[in-house]
């Protein structure tokens, strides 16, 4: 999938990328101290491209995604640049940001039940952004809502139903319909299938994949499941301790990871039929850094992954690690990458 997708991109490359994130940092202040959640993340995304962000809890992946549209609580300090169509969203006025949130970029949250208002019909909820933003009549909005529901595989006669009348997978599809309501250019999907069964998850992912292919929407999808992401997205960013550990084309990251953490994550979910993983679950000793450890990391040198790394050397404790090119279109934050290219 990756190889072909890369080839059709060049004609859009000339212009500014749709989304250009530069040195994004998020700190939470609370209880008299500052806890870093995102520690310098940069990437770009174009129309029709899909980027998967993988990581464990505390890796900062959700914080990073939500900070793009300034959806974080006020205790979060966001610095850096989020250039959307060349405009910095972090410094944009609230009115402008609201307009972007309505029409240009939308979010699919993980908890579909809590994100839907239980006392209003889903028709009303899908129509709301259309009415507010597109300034069309009730009838047009209604027709568009019916169309949207149809496109996510639900009968349009159910516009008058309430959220509790749908199953979990159906509600997640309604969330996607709502995200599509104003024909956005970018969708941020935060763990869109985490609470769903495998069968329903497959349905929702299939749907998202089709919509992206048909409409050329840019998608940032966040998940802890590397295998799901690698099949949904062209490019993959693996986050650890608030930084990108490795970024590049999905297939390559899965088949030949350059960062030991990517390798460990890839092995965590086995491929059925792979004799190497039969009766041999693969894990990684230790735990992701706690908030206070993250605060210390920010001040010290060395690789954040070093304490858990099976291949760590003395240099990993003292050298500053940053993303280095590790192949065409990919980068990894590991000293081994430098060794590999040097030797």
């Amino acid at each position: 999938m990756t190889a072909t997708d890369q080839s059709h991109a060049p004609e859009e490359r000339a212009a500014v990328p749709m989304l250009d994130v530069r040195d994004l940092r998020v700190n939470y202040r609370g209880g008299g101290r500052t806890v870093p959640a995102v520690r310098g993340v940069s990437f770009t995304l174009d129309r029709g491209q899909t980027l998967g962000v993988a990581g464990e809890s505390g890796s900062g992946k959700s914080t990073m995604a939500l900070s793009l549209l300034r959806l974080l609580p006020s205790s979060a300090q966001v610095t850096g640049q989020v250039l959307f169509e060349g405009e910095d969203l972090l410094t944009a006025k609230w009115a402008r940001l609201r307009a972007v949130r309505w029409s240009a970029a939308s979010v699919v949250f993980q908890g579909a039940m809590s994100a839907l208002n239980p006392v209003r019909t889903i028709g009303e909820q899908i129509c709301e952004p259309i009415l507010l933003h597109d300034k069309v009549g009730q009838k047009t909005a209604r027709a568009r809502a019916a169309e949207l529901l149809d496109s996510v595989g639900l009968p349009s006669r159910r516009l008058g139903s309430y959220p509790h009348e749908f199953s979990g997978g159906q509600r997640q599809r309604i969330m996607i319909a709502m995200a599509l309501a104003c024909r956005p250019d970018l969708i941020i999907a935060d763990e869109p299938t985490t609470a769903l069964d495998v069968m329903v998850q497959a349905q929702v992912l299939n749907l998202l994949g089709e919509l992206v292919r048909e409409s050329g929407i840019g998608v940032i999808m966040i998940s802890h499941d590397l295998s799901v992401l690698s099949h949904m997205c062209e490019r993959l960013a693996v986050m650890y301790a608030g930084q990108v550990a490795e970024i590049g084309p999905s297939k390559q990251l899965i088949t030949e990871p350059r960062h030991p953490y990517t390798r460990a994550l890839g092995r965590a979910f086995p491929t059925i039929g792979d004799p190497a993983s039969r009766l041999a679950p693969a894990g990684l000793p230790g735990d992701p850094p706690t908030p206070s450890e993250l605060a210390k990391l920010n001040e010290s040198r060395g690789c954040a992954f070093e304490p858990r790394c099976p291949e760590a050397t003395d240099a990993c404790r003292t050298e500053t690690v940053e993303l280095w090119p590790s192949g065409p279109g990919r980068e990894a934050a590991c000293l081994r990458v430098l060794e590999g290219s040097g030797a």
Binding site: A37, S57, S59, K61, L72, P73, E191, G242, T290
Partner: peptide
């Protein structure tokens, strides 16, 4: 699950 709730998890 997300880093959103980590600041509350102060380890005292």
């Amino acid at each position: 699950m997300s880093a959103l709730d980590t600041p509350a998890g102060l380890d005292v």
